[in-house]
Structure formats: C-alpha cells, structure tokens
Design a protein around this nucleic acid. Sequence first.
RNA 1: GGCCCGGUGGUGUAGCGGUUAACAUGCCGCCCUGUCAAGGCGGAGAGCGCGGGUUCAAAUCCCGUCCGGGCCGCCA
Length: 586
Amino acid sequence: MHKSHTSGELRRDHIGQTVKLAGWVNRRRDHGGLIFIDLRDRWGVTQVVSDPESAAAAHELLNTVRNEFVLQVTGVVRERPEGQTNENLSTGEIELVATDVKILNASKTPPFEINEDSNVDEKVRLKYRYLDLRRERMRRNLVLRSEVTTYIRNYLANEGFIEVETPILFKTTPEGARDYLVPSRVHPGKFYALPQSPQQLKQMLMVAGVEKYFQIARCFRDEDQRGDRQPEFTQLDMEMSFVERDDVTQLLEDLMTNMIEEVCDKPIMQKPWPRITYADAMDRFGEDRPDLRFEMYLKDVTAICRDTGFKVFDGAPMVKGINAEGCGATYSRKQIDALTKFVQQHGAKGLAWLRIDEDGYKSSFAKFLSEEKIGEMVAALDGKPGDLLLFIADKAEVANDVLARLRKRFGVELGLADPNVLACCWVIDFPMFMWNEDETRWDPSHHLFTSPMPDSIPLLDTDPGAAVGSQYDMVINGYETAGGSIRIHNRALQEKVFKLIGLEDDVAQERFGHMLEAFEYGTPPHGGIAPGIDRLVMLLAGEPNIREVIAFPKSQQATDIMAGAPSVVEDHQLVELHVGILDEDE
RNA sequence: GGCCCGGUGGUGUAGCGGUUAACAUGCCGCCCUGUCAAGGCGGAGAGCGCGGGUUCAAAUCCCGUCCGGGCCGCCA
C-alpha cells in the first residue's frame, strides 16, 4: 500500500507516530519558509506541513506541487500549536510534519475548482465527470448511494431474500415504454430488447419457487429525459410469493424506515406512513403522488357554483380551488398574471382568483356572482383576510391536474415544502384500468400483470372501469418512488385482462405465451414492488435531480458527454449485425 | 415533435448597438515560518458557441444551427 492511514482518521491518539498518507493536493498555502498542504482522499483532509530545516528536500518538492497533484507523504503526526487547531476538520487537532514527499503523479490545472462547491456548467461537469466526482458533494452522494444499497442488501438477506441476476438481453415488450433494441448477429433481422424492468423474469422466479427475490436491477427506457428520468436507471426489484398487498407494503415500509433512519438525518414526517386511496388523493391533492409536507388541500366547490349565472362556472363539469394563505396580501397583479399563464400552459382555460381584503374582495370573477355564493366559496376554502383563493373550472382531469401543479408550485415558492423532511405515504386502491380515448380501449393503470383486488374480479366482466387494482405506490415528497402490485397468477384471469386491453390472442401468445404457459404449472400467488433507487437517493441527499446521484449520467439528449456515446460504428460492424442506416434526409 | 432559459478569459458572472470587453476566482512570477477560502505586490489570459444577415458600426438586433438545462407530449 502507498499509505498506512487515510486522510480522515488521524487524531490526537496518533501523535508521535510515523505514518504514510497518499492523496490529492486539495489546497496549498505557501508561506515561503513554511508550506501547508491539505492532503485529500476519499475519507477526509489532513494538513501536511513542511519543515524546511529538518526536511529540506521535502520542503523543496512541496514548493513545486499544485492543486490535484497526487502525493505520498511520510511524516510524523504532531499536535498543532496552541490556538492553531481547525474545528472544521475532523483531523484538525493534528498535522503531519513531512519528512519525505513523493509526487506519485502531477496534474494539469483542473477546468474547475475541485475544492469548493462552486456552480459549474453541467456540460463541463459531465465532460470531466471524473473530476466532478472528486468534489465533496458528489463524493458524499456516491457514499450515500452505496450505504443505501448495502443496507438494503443486508436487510433483505436477513429477511430470507436471495438476490438473483436476470438478463440484460431480453425480449421486446411494445406495450410499455419504447425499448432499447440490440440487433442479433446470429439471427439476422431479430433483436433483443434491454429490459424496462425485470417484471416478467421476477414473476418467472416466483413460478420457480424462489419465493423471496430481490435485485438491484438496471432498467432501460428509451423515452425523453427529465430531471427525475434517465434512459437507464436502477430499481430495487423485489417479488414475494404467498403474500397479499399489506405484506408487501409492510415489509417495504419497515425496510425503508429503518434504512432512512440509518443513513440519513432527515426525519420521516409520519410513522406509520399514511395510506391514502387513489380517490382521496385525487380529491385532496389532484394527483396520485401527493406531497404531504404541506396541506393546501384542493376543495371541490362544484355544487356551490351551480346556477350562479356565471357561464364559466355553470358550464364546467368541475370547479375546484385552493387557498394560497397570505398571498392575497403579498402577491402583485403581475404575479397573479404569471400564475394564469402557468395554468394555461398546462391546459386550463383560465384562472379565477379572489383576494380577500379586510373590507371586501378583489377578484377576477366576483362581480358575476352573488355576495352569498362568494361567501360560500370563501367558507369552503377557509378564506380569511390576506388570503388568495384560486379556482379552476374545467373537466375533472384538467382541474385536478392544474391545481395539483399550482399546489406544488406554491410548495416551493412559499417554502411550504420543507426540504429537510421526508413525507412518505402509500397510495392504494387504484382503478385497475384507465380509459384510453384515442385508442378507445382500456389501458392498465399499472401494468398488464397487475391483479384486481379479489372483490373486483367479477367487475372485469360487468364494469371494468370500476375495478380496483391491487396496485400500491410509495410516494415521498411528491415523487413516485416505488410502484408495485399483487400479480395475476392464473392463466384465465391473465387472458381476460389481455383481452380487455385489446391484446389479440395471437399477439398475446407471441409476446407472453411463456408466461401464460408458466401459469399452468403451479404458480403461487405472488406480488412485489420496485423502488427507484435514483429518486430515493436523490431525495435522501436533498438533490434537485437524479444526475447528481448517478456516477455517469446521460445528458437530456441521452448522450454521454464524457465518452461521446452514442457514436458511429464501423461499417463492418453493421454488416455483421445485418443492420443498415436509413437516409433520413427526405 | 413543441415551448422556455442559457452559451462572453480555465471557471463563474457583468456588459445588451459605438467600452481599451468589466469583475471575482483560478493560473503564472516575486516576497513571506502558523496558515487553513492564508496574505502582499506584479503579470498573462477571451473578441463573446458556430454560420449567415441588418447596420457607418454587432458580444449586443434578426435568421438558421449546435450544445447544456427546465417543461409539454412521451414515460405499460
């Protein structure tokens, strides 16, 4: 080893010992006759000091080093002089007096500061990701991520789970997201697909009698990027046999609660986690992934708004509102106009607003309504002087969606959503299907293998829209961080669901015949869930996007800026794969 | 596919029709034995993503394009 200790571990106890450290020059402070080097490695920083008298050669060499040089320093641990300790440093009570210095490697001046948390263009950070990862923020995130996965592995191993790897080269499933395809060399014209998740494979493991499976699995979806979406991402994929919904949610809730309290100092807002039905979530939050860190519930005032004589309200299927408390006093007309623009961008026709003053109202719509109706609306939203009430009148989907976005916007803008708290909850009782207007058929609201709740099985024949699925989502601070369900384990039921979502028999057979057949060989009841590791670590780390918790993320256009992927390939490689490139100029 | 924001020394920013393109930091040199974002003095470093246009004059205005980011669509 090039070092005997790390740069984070030397303390008073080591005083007098001769040790060897190796790491990077974090900072150099040259006093002429005396040079200080902050030597950094993954574990911390230790101050090295040159002694020009007893170690002239070492001093000379330290004269020539610069930031990010890689050094090996041999020296004696010494107590710092009276009044010279550094309380910001875990090693701040001691320093290493260099007796011998070796430059293990020099470094060019880095393109940005490694030793401070300065803002740097993402382009530059991603191009030099190996330098970006040296910085404290990224180092901390890498460590946190490792702690999360290590904790999960140990916990699940203790619970009797086994980790099984599943193929990366698998089969296309066109009913999901767009697949990444890999051409087959030995089968001209045929393609593997990278898995969007190991869904089918983990169910096959249940057929295989594994009973308790997990995997830290890489998943691939060829869709456009967002701050919380990358083309490849990581899930804790889990599946269990002989379980019901509450067994799965209980296990995951225990795992997550213990894990979070072990690796993260953010408190969990409520334990046990609230369980919210889909209907309740839509009613109070307008969405199925509510941010529970603050209230500002949506209030349905449709009934009040009937027969008002105001066309916008009378004609709308739904009128719903929120109370931005205190904003009546603080929001300017210009800010309200910005909110109007915001809701229009998301599909609402307009924003009806009402400011409550001490002596009356200021409003975009009050003049069209009776004093009495306005009083009822204000009462419904608990409005008081200084408040700003905002209403959307539209189809239920639009009113809910837009108000949910407004609510989340206020959560940030008004500082209602405490970034240091984790509000975890379960959303349950999802509808089994969502009506797809464009294709005039039912779409599964989770995926095609989700079982209906036992009571809902008869509804598949009579009223599919009313059927409740066994799906459960784990939501943290408004992010969907896991989704799972109890699966169908019966061929006839699976075929019925395929039929309902418009999968022709022969297509179902071609794509999922292996599963249907497997269900005929003693498949146990089973279910599972898959938390997204990237989002989870992002929330624990308090980062604004998942790129910050992925060592080598892709850009928004799905490229690797450091290596330059994707790239052109040699013609002979294409020939081997029986692949040609279309000329798309026309 | 669409909308929005951004691209100016190595890095982060200012400048938004006429400037010697400014500031901070980093970098280089000299001085300096107790600093820890060390300090002092001096210096080098960009012609403003790229291409075209308007203008007497463009980093500043217009068009196109590339790149990064946010969002809509998309994400069973």
